[in-house]
């Protein structure tokens, strides 16, 4: 027999992962909806998912590759950049989507119960399509420049998972914060734009470590994506593995993810009242 007890005096902070699992169908269906709706009634359709990163890549190649002539060793610049961009674009997409996700589903939140975490989580899944397209870009570029992947590629899944967790961590934080403070609606796009340059997407991280003082490098690596983008690229193209500072990034991912879940859980209780 299904039994439910709600007591105003006993508030639990458990994450209730079991319940989340029971709602997995909702998670799929929401992701499906977003995918279907995303390019509905557009002329180019899914082509947009290809054109957007290509345009960014083009400008990066012109500015960093040709004009500034960033040193990427023996790796052709476009390939170098596309590896960083794949991870970053996924992160940025999930962040943008999930930051606003609770507010844009407020009609639903006010009318029915389900674990609210399903909403930002489903956004991570929607991003997989773009992520897959970006990964196939990398394959095409490697083929074109006839560069074989390094043996480090066995670590690629780990970095993909870290990318997802990192995107979720910040996405969950932002979605919960946005409900209370609409300021974060403006913070998120800024964060994504700012992060594109503050993360070693278009340039190698060594440039920062070499040219900036120690504290600045530490700060640089407190960005969870700094270490991940570096590792992601290393697992594909080889070269120097991420330095010790990169572990700051990995620690930040875990820290932000866990605190994010708990902050979200705390906000979840009053979500329908304040959204």
């Amino acid at each position: 027999m299904h039994k439910l007890i709600v007591d105003a005096n006993k508030k639990s902070l458990g994450l209730n992962l079991k319940e989340l699992w029971q709602y997995r169908d909702l998670f799929y269906v929401l992701a499906y909806r977003d995918l279907r709706v995303r390019y509905a009634q557009t002329f180019l359709g899914l082509l947009w998912a290809v054109l957007q990163p290509l345009a960014t890549l083009l400008i990066f190649t012109l500015v960093f590759g040709r004009a500034v002539k960033v040193d990427t060793g023996n790796i052709p610049y476009p390939l170098f950049a596309v590896c960083g961009m794949a991870a970053w674009a996924y992160f940025g997409f999930v962040l943008n989507q999930s930051g606003n996700s609770i507010i844009s589903s407020q009609e639903m939140i006010k009318k029915i119960y389900f674990p609210r975490l399903v909403i930002p989580l489903s956004k991570a899944m929607v991003g997989f399509v773009d992520f897959a397209i970006a990964l196939s870009f990398i394959a095409v570029f490697m083929f074109y420049y006839s560069i074989t992947p390094s043996v480090n590629i066995i670590f690629l899944p780990i970095f993909i998972i870290l990318t997802i967790i990192s995107a979720l961590a910040i996405g969950i934080w932002m979605s919960a914060l946005t409900i209370r403070y609409r300021d974060f609606q403006h913070v998120v796009p800024f964060l994504v734009q700012f992060g594109l340059y503050a993360t070693p997407v278009g340039y190698p991280a060594e440039l920062i470590v070499k040219n900036l003082p120690g504290w600045a490098s530490t700060l640089f690596y407190l960005n969870p994506m700094a270490g991940i983008v570096e590792g992601f690229r290393w697992s594909l193209l080889g070269g120097n593995p991420p330095g010790q500072l990169a572990y700051y990034s990995f620690a930040m991912v875990i820290l932000l993810f866990i605190t994010g879940l708990y902050y979200f859980k705390r906000t979840e209780r009053v979500m329908a009242d304040i959204v």
Binding site: I5, V6, D7, A8, R269, V270, D273
Partner: peptide
């Protein structure tokens, strides 16, 4: 959808 401020309820 929302939590009570006080009291409790039980649903079987």
């Amino acid at each position: 959808i929302t939590e009570p401020t006080k009291g409790r309820f039980e649903i079987n």
